Amino acid sequence: VVVSLQNGVGNARLPRQHIKQCVIAGMVPFNVFYKGIGHFHCGTEGNIALEDPNNQCSDIIKALNNASLPVKVYNDMEAVQYGKLIMNLNNAVNALSGIPLKSQLGDRQYRLVMAKVLSEALAVLKAEGIAPARTGKVIPKLMPKIMKLPDFLFNVVASSTLKIDPEARSSMYEDLALGRRTEIDYLNGEIVRLGEKNHIATPVNKHIVNLIKQHEVAQKGSPHLPANALLLK
């Protein structure tokens, strides 16, 4: 059994086309940042999710539980993966900002960018007939409103729903820092694709996809862009 934990909603589909083993869809709902020399830092909370309707993962689940990595099992992961996709749309914003997640989400200008990103995403998912599941304490459809809150109100909400370690950064920030290709086509790019399919404009997500791809090619790490640079002029 192979468990695919890659971000994106089609993460198990691709390996199934190329290997003979049973491929199980999985998801890591918490933030992990690699600090070097075998040190992986967990910056937010949550349990590993696996799609296991036929109970093929009992040995893996036992091993993960023994390693203090508890698992939540689902019969169907699609809604859960789309819920995680909604959360992961911030990965690119964080990578382009170049600052820790807590600082970025603490800045209302970046949150206003995220409100637009999320509003576009929820519109195209609704058109597609997809209801993203709640993967943590935040209800997906409320996220644009939460992002627009003034700082003092956001801090009250975030203190109980978004526990983020001060050191946490997105994996896409790490990709840019290491000169790797990012997952942008499977995150914000998925929203752009569904928007085109359903004839819904997604200008902010499209702009962010283009920015990430520019800086992938540049291979100079995060460009440390201000929030207004993430919006189309």
Rank of each mutant, 00 (worst) to 15 (best):
G136F: 04
G136R: 06
V138W: 02
V138I: 14
V138T: 13
I139G: 02
I139A: 06
P144H: 09
P144V: 09
K145N: 12
K145C: 07
P150Q: 05
D151R: 14
F152V: 09
F152G: 03
F152I: 09
L153K: 08
L153C: 14
L153G: 08
F154C: 08
N155W: 02
V156K: 13
V156Y: 07
V156S: 07
V157Y: 05
V157R: 02
V157C: 13
A158P: 01
S159N: 08
S160P: 00
T161E: 09
T161A: 14
L162E: 07
L162V: 08
K163E: 00
I164Q: 05
I164F: 12
I164Y: 09
E167M: 11
E167V: 07
A168K: 07
R169A: 00
Y173A: 07
Y173V: 01
Y173W: 12
Y173F: 14
Y173D: 11
E174M: 08
E174F: 01
D175P: 11
L176Q: 04
A177E: 10
L178R: 10
R180I: 06
R181Y: 03
R181M: 08
D185V: 04
Y186T: 06
Y186R: 02
N188A: 09
E190P: 02
I191T: 04
I191A: 05
I191V: 12
R193T: 11
G195E: 03
E196F: 00
K197E: 15
N198S: 12
N198T: 07
